[in-house]
Amino acid sequence: MISELLINAFLVTVMLAIAIALLKTRTVIFTVILTSAYSLVAALMFITLDAVDVAFTEASVGAGISTILFLAAMAYLPKKEEENFSNQFLPALSCIILGAILIWCSYDLPEIGLISSPIHQHIVPDYILGSRNDIGIPNIVTSVLASYRGYDTFGETIVVFTAGVAVLVLLQNNKKNPKNTKSKINKIDKKVG
């Protein structure tokens, strides 16, 4: 128990240190690197909470794919962030108030892993008991995602796919007449600055 507390305290400290370093840095590539490190540590946190599947997703999506996507987007950005000297009192105040409200609300949540909490009473026992006979896939999370809530997953996949296709269509590199695209981009560049 005490060791569990020790590990959690260590992980939270490391995450806090990374977050402070993120605030201090001005180089864009370093921001992306630190974000990747942050999600690595966050996935460790999920492991200590016994949420292996979430940790898997965090490791592959948070630390892997999103880092690469950020990097690909970063190729269009300037190397350094601009210094911003405007008054930051109001944003800081709103952040602190929001955080205080969230912490205050978290006191009403049931304890982690409590069996009598409502989320473990309603439909989860059905899924856990029936999964092997109904569907026959060894992994319960997979059977919930792909079968019990199959329509949900189907809809989500369609939404994500449509969004991806739309982005590809918008950003398509016009290969037939590259001059056209280039002049357009140049015009936009001139307009922006």
Partner: peptide, 21 residues
């Protein structure tokens, strides 16, 4: 299993950062 995934993701991430750089 997660440790294996990490070992691979770590490599890909580092190579991607270096390639961009």
């Amino acid at each position: 299993d997660i440790a294996i995934v990490y070992a691979l993701i770590n490599f890909i991430g580092t190579i991607a950062v270096l390639k961009l750089f």
